[in-house]
């Protein structure tokens, strides 16, 4: 069983994120780390591989070359090899362009199962897998909080706004996992040492046979026009409770005509 896991390097959680006013893109110059939920997708892939007793876990990513640092963390967890699509012409790709690039890379791999982490911490995006699934013409399960792979099909259970769903799809399939699905393992020292020696391929757009016009801003269908400060919420008041906290709240609610 071959499992591809799509992962992304995002600005480190500890860093203050900012949008570069010049390029109007997220400033990725600082410390990067593996998108947190992607570690859950890697963990799930490792569990499925290990339960079946054979197979391969391949990381697939798009980003600058320094994203290899984050891929190595996933290799240290136990993934077998990594494939990074990196090309200056791919910078600034939106959903349409990114999904086209990833789909090309995934087509080369021809995995039985393609996993995603449910949410990117930098763009608040929670949509990429559905676009990739459509391009690959594969069935999709999103938000999976439990997964079983059995008899040539994958079954996912997920929580929804109304309760839960159980969805089954024949392999090959695309699945996005929620972070409640598992607890990602910490890489062992041996894993960290071994990660450097694992196969890490960096592919350009030309390597994938993608025209530069299909990528980056020219391949995108959306644009950022301007940045501004969000409207203020109005006055905020913070009071220390001196024993009259509850009264203060009631006074406030009366003032707002809420009680």
């Amino acid at each position: 069983m071959k499992i591809a896991v799509c992962v992304k390097q995002v600005p480190d959680a500890a860093a203050t994120k900012r949008i570069d006013p010049g390029t109007k893109r997220l400033d990725r110059s600082g410390e990067g780390s593996l998108n947190p939920v992607d570690a859950n997708a890697v963990e799930e892939a490792l569990r499925i591989r290990d339960a079946s007793g054979e197979g391969e876990v391949v990381l697939v990513s798009l980003g600058p070359e320094k994203a290899l640092d984050s891929l190595r963390k996933a290799l240290a967890m136990g993934a077998d090899r990594a494939l990074l699509v990196s090309d200056p012409d791919a910078a600034g790709s939106d959903l349409v362009a990114t999904s086209a690039l990833l789909a090309k890379a995934l087509e080369r791999e021809g995995a039985d199962l393609v996993l995603f982490g449910q949410q990117a911490s930098d763009s608040d995006g929670a949509v990429l897998w559905a676009a990739v699934a459509d391009r690959l013409r594969l069935p999709l399960i999103s938000q999976a909080a439990e997964l079983t792979v059995e008899g040539g099909a994958v079954t996912g259970k997920r929580q929804t706004e109304f309760g839960y769903d159980v969805i089954r799809a024949p392999l090959p399939a695309v699945v996005a996992v929620a972070d409640s699905i598992n607890e990602p393992r910490y890489p062992s020292l041996k894993g960290i040492m071994g990660a450097k020696k694992k196969q890490q391929d960096v592919l350009s757009l030309a390597d994938l046979g993608i025209e530069p016009e299909r990528a980056g801003t020219t391949g995108s269908r959306t644009e950022v026009l301007a940045l501004s400060d969000p409207p203020p919420r109005g006055e905020t008041r913070k009071l220390e409770d001196d024993g009259t906290g509850a009264e203060k709240i009631v006074e406030f609610l009366v003032e707002k005509r809420l009680v």
């Binding site: 349409v96 676009a131 459509d134 999103s142 269908r221």
Partner: peptide, 23 residues
């Protein structure tokens, strides 16, 4: 925004090569 709508909108974006803005 909903679980269904997000997946639907993104799938449609890919199918039609159409721009999708979210949030």
């Amino acid at each position: 925004q909903s679980i269904l709508s997000a997946d639907l909108a993104a799938g449609l974006a890919a199918r039609l090569d159409a721009g999708l803005n979210w949030q």
